[in-house]
Amino acid sequence: MDGRALRVKAARRREGMVETRTPLGMLADIIIHAALVVVTLCCVVPVWHVMMASLSDGRRMLEVEGALMLPAGIKPNFAGYRLVFSNMAILKGYANTLLYVAAGPMFGMALNITAGYALSRESRLRVPLTLVTLFTTMFSGGLVPSYMVIHSLGWVGTRWALMIPGCTNAFFILLMMNAFKGVPQSSVEAARIDGAGHARAMLKVMLPQCVNLTTVVILNSVVLQWNSWFPASIYVTSSRDKWPLQLWIRQMVADNETALQMSSPDYNRLLIQYAVIVAATLPILAAFPFFQKRFEKGLLLGGVKE
């Protein structure tokens, strides 16, 4: 009994909480928890609403006010998903997004790792090359000149325009540079003395030691690519077979607005817009718990390294 009380006291000391509970303190606790519950609900409700709407009766959806807690309609209606997954255009968009999400960050990481490594090692050109990288964060040519470069490469209307130009940026490269710099130099030197070349030292010795920051960079570029729609909207405007999923979301909504103005609309079609949003969001949210720990750790390494 005594031991337990001591442990509890010690734990509370660690937390910096030494005062005894007062009614006012309890009230503050209640307010804090209530506020956090409200904030959490704000984050969950919109996503939940869309998930429930995607399972609703299309006709009833038109009359729904506010946010749904349960699907509107007598029983869950999967017509929206059936329409999404039987729509070849959307499936193609899904496949395109998967391709872009795999290829873009892969090109990007190849550049981030090689350049990050090159900039983390001592050499005469290290500082000038770092500045060359850094300058691109400050000044950009803008929309029209960038479009013209892609145009003169002959990439307008091709998938390259969606995968290569946005595959990396100076922040990612510098983040990888910092990651490599954070690896204890002794282990690198030991490997070099044992006869490992640059390539081996980089991939076999250093990279495994900066998994967390690498996760952050990979994840950021994956999310960037998964969410990207603007380049597609200007570079492959008319070739719909190359559209990523995000662009189809926009299209579905626009289609629905016109469909609603017809005399006898197909109410199930209205559900496509919800179903496609769920299909475009759920995979990344579902995958998240698997890399959450590394991601948070890496984020802190990048952010609060003192």
Partner: peptide, 15 residues
């Protein structure tokens, strides 16, 4: 350090 510069070369082209 030539190999380092070679490693940076693709990124330089990209930039």
């Amino acid at each position: 350090n030539g190999f380092l510069y070679l490693l940076y070369a693709p990124t330089l082209c990209y930039l």
